[in-house]
Amino acid sequence: MEHLTSTFQPETLQEIFKFVWAQTAKKRSKEDSDEADPEVAAAGAGPSKKSRGTNINSDALKLSCEYLRLFVTEAVERAALVAEAEGCTTIEGTHFERILPQLLLDF
């Protein structure tokens, strides 16, 4: 049970990915229908596009989970280093802010 809640779940990540992909697909189809005749676009591209939505391999999903885990652990470890240098035992916002620019450049 501990193990289940302590890591990033591939299922959760899959849902997030699907959510993002659905949004981008919707945005794209809206742009298409704005350009072309709306009724033609709705009739032609609608159902076929939905069925061919982006999918993900289970290995790729696990890899993404590991990527997220690395991101979070790296963030906390770097912030902990800064907090330790200042003699604190709790990571505060200021410590986090200090490591944020380099962290975002690294990932």
Binding site: E84, T90, I91, E92
Partner: peptide
Amino acid sequence: TAHKCGMKVS
């Protein structure tokens, strides 16, 4: 991760 470093996270 924080626990390993002996830290707490706000």
